[in-house]
Design a protein around this nucleic acid. Structure first.
Lengths: 219, 219
DNA sequence: ACAAATTTTTAGATTTGTCTAAATTTTTTA
DNA sequence: TAAAAAATTTAGACAAATCTAAAAATTTGT
């Protein structure tokens, strides 16, 4: 498989995991920042290789093989991200671009050994689950901070948007994975939240709250 | 730079460091396992980018920029090899192929941090020197085992041939970097050597002896 | 339901890196 | 030193991945 093919497979997987199960040519073109005609060409190629189900004008979806392939790439990506943060001291907003390159390195053994070096992590630095060696994959079953009722107490366990801009915003406001937060008040006007973050009181916009995954703590 | 361009630059550097300073199209084609016509095309491209000196029918050599580029790629290759052996437990005969992929990862910061993680190693697992961040490079000033006079005592510091076959042969005979060896006798017939390796007496063919770098110990 | 709008595909071109076969230049050698 | 041999380059083709522009299919709206 070429890098480009792997990137398409990954993109289809990510689109599919947002709910849509049949992905349109245009949606994929936008995700890949390319033209629809290029997508059509690539879908023909991936279809011939048995990685996607594709019928002209009918959209595309991953085959079993395609899904397995996608999970393997995502596993590599996320393990490398853990490595970059845990072993090399990168910050969580720096690792994505480098992992985009490292995920294409071909060596089963390399990934197994990396997994071992990192002590078999289950989540990447953004809180996203790392698929297992044999394709086991836990979806985020977490709620978004914006969905919690007032008074709830929860742990921050992941980010939905893992763009560098958002991550640096969180750093600036000392919001990190593992923080405990309590919803104090929800502003009716703009749905912003007043929360207690560890010891600190904080005002958080709806935008922010709907990009933070949390795990409710029962009291 | 593309992977392919980087591989050509590296190949030219390696050919140049065997003594030849102007490399022929055919020599490069053989090294790259490709056709001379492909080499000609690539030389035109690399020449336009200012990486090589190239005049039709006159052979090719690296520019200052080309040499700097080659050293940077070799630095990455060798640091990754150290990582694979030291941190992931690979054997020295397994690392070359994986490092061939990893050397193309683009991130200055990644390599600096890797260098630091590995505690700024000066040699790779085969005893080859690792170029410095700013292009400082020490050539092997070592002698080959085959060049030592009878009676000399030396440390094994590197391998000239780092093919997996040769490395596994060394493993099988418990010859490793750091071993102390004393030349006991040279067989006139086939130039094979009888050596004392640590405690053990060993017969070594000329082929083997001319692929082991040693550093003489003054007594 | 049928014309208009949108989406998708096809056709043809471009770039990179490769190939084969033919032409050209350089080197060898008789 | 001129013909033969070897090395190198050019020309033309191909595959991968992309693009633009045009054609075709599907969806939408009245």
């Amino acid at each position: 498989m070429t890098h480009s093919e792997e990137n398409y497979i990954k993109a289809i997987f990510h689109l599919a995991s947002t709910g849509i199960e049949v992905i349109s040519t245009n949606a994929l073109a936008e995700k890949m920042e390319t033209k629809p005609s290029s997508v059509t060409d690539m879908m023909r190629r991936l279809s011939e290789k048995g990685l996607v189900h594709y019928k002209k004008y009918q959209g595309v979806s991953l085959t079993t093989l395609g899904t397995k392939t996608a999970l393997s790439i995502i596993r590599k990506h996320r393990l490398w991200e853990v490595f970059l943060v845990e072993k090399l001291g990168f910050t969580w907003d720096e690792v994505h671009e480098i992992a985009e390159q490292l995920e294409h390195i071909k060596s089963e053994k390399l990934i197994d050994k990396l997994d071992e070096l990192l002590d078999f992590p289950k989540f990447d630095p953004h809180g996203d689950p790392i698929p297992g060696k044999n394709g086991e994959f836990m979806e985020h079953d977490n709620q978004l901070l914006s969905q919690l009722p007032i008074g709830s107490v929860a742990l921050c366990v992941g980010v939905k948007d893992s763009s560098a801009v958002f991550l640096r915003f969180l750093d600036k406001n000392s919001i990190a994975l593992g923080n405990k937060m309590k919803i104090l008040e929800k502003e009716e006007f703009d749905n912003s939240l007043r929360i207690l973050l560890d010891e600190r009181e904080l005002q958080i916009s709806q935008q922010i709250a709907s990009n933070l995954y949390v795990k409710k703590i029962e009291l």
